[in-house]
């Protein structure tokens, strides 16, 4: 059982829902990424999605694009992201999901990545632009190493695709709340409930909802319909706006508590 699976089981037993922040590794620095993850853990995060910067982030909106450019400017590489995981593991058991575009993973080598990710304390891998059709090797190799494989399900996915996607997911299923790139929105999609019901008919795995979740009322609304809420751009923006401040980490922790409805 991975830390991700354990955490979702514990939450379920307690009748609670997961809060899942995404941050881009190396924004603003790798040391601060480590400190931010520890602070997010302290502020009630249940799983961390740690983003690997990639030169061509086609699925991301402007906020995460800018974070990516800053991280690449700092020459952050996949091996550096793995090292952050190892540093976290000395101090925390927070579940870690490696979040990447496929090319950096493929170039690193699937076998080597699986081994190094486990050694660095990661619990699962998600590749944004890897479709289930192309993922046979990826799934086999990651699972053999003991890692969860998480895939995205979209509101445009057909029932046939939903069946394939949910079957390919372990740990949890990542439901994309709406069409489009990552980024904050004022309202949640009106069709989200029907989409989640369709997903629920195909899987017993936990379902986490992401894309556009940026306010406490969004988190609350998602928690009513699903098992977890993913917040990316809103937190990355908070990091961007407070970058350079001595109290960056505290501010992001406070922001996280606010999103969770605790502040």
């Amino acid at each position: 059982m991975t830390r991700i699976e354990k955490r979702f089981a514990q939450l379920k037993a307690a009748g609670r829902k997961a809060f899942i922040p995404y941050i881009t590794a190396g924004d603003p620095t790798l040391d601060l990424t480590r400190d931010l993850i520890l602070a997010l853990d302290g502020a009630g995060a249940d799983v961390i999605e740690l983003g690997v910067p990639f030169s061509d982030p086609i699925a991301d909106g402007p906020v995460i694009q800018r974070a990516t450019e800053r991280a690449l400017h700092n020459r952050v590489r996949l091996r550096d992201v793995l090292r952050v995981g190892a540093e976290i593991r000395r101090q925390s058991e927070i579940p870690l999901l490696l979040f990447s575009y496929y090319n950096p993973i493929l170039h690193y080598g699937l076998e080597k990545l699986a081994r190094d990710a486990v050694d660095s304390g990661f619990d699962g891998v998600l590749a944004t632009d890897l479709t289930v059709e192309e993922s046979a090797d990826f799934i086999r190799i990651m699972r053999a190493a003991g890692l969860n494989t998480v895939f995205l399900a979209a509101p445009t996915s057909s029932p046939e695709r939903i069946r394939k996607i949910t079957a390919a997911c372990t740990g949890f299923v990542y439901a994309v709340s709406r069409t489009g790139v990552t980024g904050e929105r004022n309202e949640l999609s009106a069709t989200l409930r029907g989409f989640l019901q369709l997903l629920r008919r195909h899987t017993d795995s936990p379902i986490a909802v992401g894309f556009g979740i940026s306010r406490p009322e969004h988190v609350k609304a998602v928690w009513e319909e699903a098992d977890g809420a993913v917040v990316g751009s809103a937190i990355v923006r908070e990091i961007e706006q407070n970058s350079g401040r001595a109290d960056l980490v505290d501010r992001v922790a406070a922001f996280t508590k606010w999103l969770r409805g605790e502040a």
């Binding site: 086609i58 479709t131 059709e133 979209a154 057909s158």
Partner: peptide, 23 residues
């Protein structure tokens, strides 16, 4: 697997685009 030329080609896109590609 479809849309391959030998080992090359395929469909590596965010899931949201799979339906329009099928369409």
């Amino acid at each position: 697997m479809k849309g391959h030329f030998g080992v090359y080609g395929g469909q590596y896109v965010p899931e949201t685009l799979m339906h329009p590609l099928e369409e």
